[in-house]
Nucleic acid binder design. Sequence first.
DNA 1: GCAAAAGTGTTCACTTTACACCCATGT
DNA 2: ACATGGGTGTAAAGTGAACACTTTTGC
Lengths: 236, 236
Amino acid sequence: MSSKKGAYSYKFPRPAVTVDCVVFGLDLEAEHLKVMLIQRDLEPFAGQWALPGGFVREHESLNEAAERELREEAGLDNIFLEQLYSFGEPQRDPRGRVISVAYYALVSPEAHEAIASTDARDAAWFDLEEVPSLPFDHKQILTMAKERLKGKVRYRPIGFELLPEKFTLSQLQRLYEIILETKLDKRNFQRKIHRMEILVDTGEVQQNVAHRAARFYSFDEAAYKQLERDGQEFSI
Amino acid sequence: MSSKKGAYSYKFPRPAVTVDCVVFGLDLEAEHLKVMLIQRDLEPFAGQWALPGGFVREHESLNEAAERELREEAGLDNIFLEQLYSFGEPQRDPRGRVISVAYYALVSPEAHEAIASTDARDAAWFDLEEVPSLPFDHKQILTMAKERLKGKVRYRPIGFELLPEKFTLSQLQRLYEIILETKLDKRNFQRKIHRMEILVDTGEVQQNVAHRAARFYSFDEAAYKQLERDGQEFSI
DNA sequence: GCAAAAGTGTTCACTTTACACCCATGT
DNA sequence: ACATGGGTGTAAAGTGAACACTTTTGC
């Protein structure tokens, strides 16, 4: 099992290495976080819903592997993706020693539609509260991903990744209420957001709503970077 | 290169998997963070200083591998250890594809002494500002570990891991000043610490110091857990 | 006109910050 | 007696939390 390369002196069997991705989406109507699962077509656990993922190839980095799997299995490209944690209990995979580098991803509602359009027909969204039983240690990975999201969303502007390009302040507030599992005060929330000056008013408003139309905003990346440079911090 | 196990359909060469550890120590006199490096005895980079680490064995978890390497190479046992990040650029190791799961560890001055006593004679402490050039992507790993420590120490009680069992408030303050690279106000700092009620006064005081003797405190794990249960948070 | 969500200010409590002096001890 | 670091209080500013009504729109 040792390598053919002369300089290589590793004498133990090598584990296989996979990436697994926790893809979060947001259902603002149902007020739920969603996670994307795919129906496995290979053993073990063929037919079961599982996190999208697969083996890391020889000439790609871990990030590239995660991006490729999301593209191939979920039809998702160019989305927020960040490494979560690596899982390596010896018995976590019945096939043998498999180490999984887990990632989490955040996708906007626009990107949701990509799933239907591509060959990722085995992918589906599940309410985070109604996830079926998952193979391997995918439940544990999912739990950790949710904790990471919950912890990070408060002090990094990653929540916007879950919203459409243009969104209302109410949608943004609902996002935080869903992720943080708490109610927020509307006036305090809006003041806080406005104070940071990281949103731009698109000038557009809601159409055909049976109440006063809300303004659409979008996240201003440049303004956020300026905020950081000024020693301020994003914070909800 | 495919596995002998029938159920296993992975057709790509497997990467090797290593763990690498960034071990931090604190030099309160010199007011510097230190990092432990070991002199490599194997190629590649034999003779160079590098992060302690090595290959993950077949029947051990990633955590166990990191613990074993620290024991074998640094004579360190039972210390704070947490996974940092996994590094997997295809060219990061000249031997071929090697994925490294990085950890960071915090050791108290008492544990420093372990190094001299064991067979870890190739281990040595370096001021964080005076680290020699490191092989592989170890510099990048070290940088990320430092950022993680800097970020985490403010809202988790992990700083205590770098102090002796019993410490003075000034030592604790100096710890934060060193890690956060900032000056703190003594009165405000002490008030903050006391308000959390997570330290116990050991009743002991400094001996043979040419000034009023400081009290020794120790971190009260149980009190901290109570604080958490009360919905409060550790914070500096 | 009514239902439904948008938008907007003020007060109070608490936390953070800035700041200076006396105390205990060894030499 | 002096040098050294230990230990302590107070006032001002800023931040976070609580709280209710008017506006706009579609039906």
